[in-house]
Amino acid sequence: MISSLGKYIVNFIIIILAQVLILNNIDFGIYINPFLYLLIILSLPVNISNWLLFTTGFITGLIIDAFTNSIGLHASATVFLCFTRPYILKYFAPRDGYEPGSLPVPSHFGNAWFFKYILIGITAHHFFLFFTEAFTFTDFTTTLSKIVASTIVTSLIIMIAQMFGKRNKRR
């Protein structure tokens, strides 16, 4: 238990650093903003308690906000992801439910399952994020293109990042 907590904290720090020091500085144009940090929320254990899920999500969002001068923006979007996550997991649940202690990662459920799971979660998050950022529906097509483009790139980057962490996650 302690060692898995330590692993989470190390992963947390690595992912946050990769997000704010590398991905935030790579310029992919205005339509593409990859948010690797969502992997932190998406890979939390299936049966995590709600308060811990929301607290982790909120703090993660705030840290990202502190680096991009957008206090509250990523925090609110990440909290929204935390809200949708249990429903998405329920929708993709195996026929006889989740085993206690299972993680929503490819090594437990396979790559195809994982990709479908993160795609829906990321879409929900990006919808919330980009519309909150624009705070208007006037530039609907621009915002929508941002959501679609960023969702695809974020999903791919998370799939790639997941491959790096795969070795030590296998039970």
Partner: peptide, 19 residues
């Protein structure tokens, strides 16, 4: 319905910060 309550609690706080 604790999920909904947690959601509202954190979301209200986030938007308070944002605004």
């Amino acid at each position: 319905y604790n999920l909904v309550f947690f959601f509202l609690l954190f979301e209200v706080f986030s938007f308070y910060l944002l605004i």
